[in-house]
Each structure stands twice: as C-alpha cells, then as structure tokens.
C-alpha cells in the first residue's frame, strides 16, 4: 500500500495505518462475540427455570467460591493493564512479570471453574439432566473456553517475548490480547450477576 492520507490530512506511517485497521477489526470481532454471548445469555434466561426435577441454581451455586473466582479474574485484568503500561515504556522485564502473573491468575480461575464443574458432574448434576444445567454449563463453559484460548495465546506471547524485544508487531499483538482479556472480564461481570447472584435470589 502506498501512503494513505486520512481525513484530517495528516501523514500517518504505514505501521499506524496497520494498527488502526487491526485494532478496529479486533474490536469488531469482540462485538460479534458479545452477540454470541447474548444468544447464550438469552437461552440461559429463558431456560434456567426448566430444572426438570433436578437441582436449580440455588441448590448448586457456592457464592463465596464464585467471589474468589471473580476477584482472581478482576486482578488479572488489572495486571494486564500493568503489562501494557510497562510495554509502552519498553520495559521488557516488567511486561514479562505482569504477563506471567496474569497467566497464573487466569490458570487459577480456570482450575477453580473446572473443579466446580467436576464436582457438579460427580454429584450427578451434569448437562444431560435438564435444560437449566445444559444452559448453565454452556454459558459458563463458553466463557471458560475463551479464557483457555486466551491463556494459550498468552503462552505464545510470553514465549515470543522471552526470545525477542518488543517489536511493533509484538506490541500490536499484546494490545489485542489485553483487549481480549479485559473483554472476558466484562463478560464475567454479566455471568456472575445473571447466573450466580440472580440464581441465589
């Protein structure tokens, strides 16, 4: 591409043009993910009363446990922000530190969630029992799958960062990752409110 002149008639470098496109594209993808989750939320909202003789949310949700999960994820969102601040200062070591902390917190969240799921299943409350349980496992599980994907992505980024400096490409990908991770915490706010808190009412 030759140089594009934007509407304000200010010359922008090739890198900035790419960054602007990529961040807008990724943001648009996150918005489509919102609609995906909305469909799952709608399904949960409609079907959560259909317990078919099995347990309801009140019977199976453990609020203190979920509070801990929530705090872990929130802190990890904060540490991602700290990693981005360090990246802008080109401080590679700090970036690595905060990214690793984020990863450990994310892994802790996922382990707690998987533990919760396996307890439910071993108690006989699996997704095959009722529409409520199907929609619960799917909504929360889809969020968990996104967290897993994020952790895999983070692993790749951390590995890259061990081997090289913060190039503009790596900076761009770190920015996208942080957008993704913050977004997952936003979705979790919806989940802990609608599924767990409202389930306990």
């Amino acid at each position: 591409m030759s140089k594009h002149v934007d509407e304000m008639a200010i010359e922008i470098s090739h890198e900035e043009v790419v960054n602007a496109k990529v961040t807008l594209g990724f943001w648009t993808y996150l918005m489509t993910d919102c609609v995906l989750f909305a469909s799952l939320f709608a399904t949960y909202a409609v079907l959560h009363g259909n317990t078919f003789g099995g347990p309801s949310g009140k019977d199976i949700f453990d609020l203190p446990y979920i509070f801990v999960e929530t705090m872990i994820l929130l802190v990890s969102s904060f540490t991602t922000g700290l990693a981005m601040i360090a990246a802008r200062k080109n401080n590679k070591d700090q970036v690595l530190t905060w990214l690793i902390v984020t990863g450990l917190l994310g892994a802790a969240f996922l382990i707690m969630e998987l533990t919760e799921f396996s307890h439910l299943i071993s108690d006989g409350h699996s997704w095959t029992v009722s529409a409520f349980l199907s929609s619960y496992f799917t909504l929360v599980g889809t969020h968990g799958l996104h967290i897993l994907t994020g952790l895999l992505w983070l692993t790749v980024l951390i590995t890259k960062l061990f081997r090289q400096d913060i190039t503009s490409t790596l900076m761009r990908r770190l920015t996208l990752f942080s957008m993704f991770w913050h977004f997952l915490d936003v979705i979790w706010v919806g989940i802990f409110t609608v599924v767990y808190l409202m389930g306990a009412l």
């Binding site: 995906l36 399904t43 409609v46 997704w127 529409a131 199907s134 799917t138």
Partner: peptide, 28 residues
C-alpha cells in the same frame, strides 16, 4: 453470531446429550 450460537446448541444437544431444544429434559 446468533447462528453460530444456535447451531452450537443444537450440536451440543445431538453430541453431548444436552437439553436445549429436546422434547424432554425441560428443553424448548
């Protein structure tokens, strides 16, 4: 994304025995 979600739910019903849209289990 609505299509993606809905196809997934049907697939989950079919492969993992979930009850989103089945005639039993509280599905709708």
């Amino acid at each position: 994304p609505i299509l993606t979600a809905t196809l997934s739910l049907l697939a989950l019903d079919r492969t993992l025995g979930m009850h989103f849209f089945t005639a039993n289990g509280g599905g709708d």
